[in-house]
Amino acid sequence: MQVTMSVNGAEVSREIEARLLLVHFLRDHLGLTGTHWGCDTSNCGTCVVLVDDEPVKSCTMLAAMAGGHDVRTVEGLEQDGVLDPLQRGFMECHGLQCGFCTPGMLMTTRALLDRNPDPTDHEIREAISGQICRCTGYATIVRSVQWAAAEQAGIRTSLPEQDDSRASSAVGGAS
């Protein structure tokens, strides 16, 4: 069957088997191997991608089900050569060691910060509770997300110097 969807903003269309899982579509058909594939049983969360801005375990969704929807993977976080604040946070605060869980952690926490720009430690832990990290013990992941939240807030509060009207709406939208 033919499936067409948007992946990181670009429309892609491929002939696939209906039983193909989204994770394998992304990795094997599109070559986007940033999305990892781990437990295969909806438990570890390393395969999380955003579908219409919501985190979804891509090992438990058919590629066919994503047809017509917007999929965003870890490759889509970087914009014009600038890393996402979360990617920088994970570097600054050692949010990864082996990096296996990282793509899923980044996508879930990207969705978290989009909904809740100033999460508590508890809210971060809750958001990633469907994801397993065997290396970090989670403390540095939580710290990395806090770093990114502060960084984003910093970007917003530094805006007034450039453009007052834009800054006030950006801050309003974030609260």
Binding site: G45, P55, M61, A127, S129, G130, Q131
Partner: peptide, 9 residues
Amino acid sequence: IADPVVRNR
């Protein structure tokens, strides 16, 4: 029930 990501679906 499950975790927040599973609960999205």
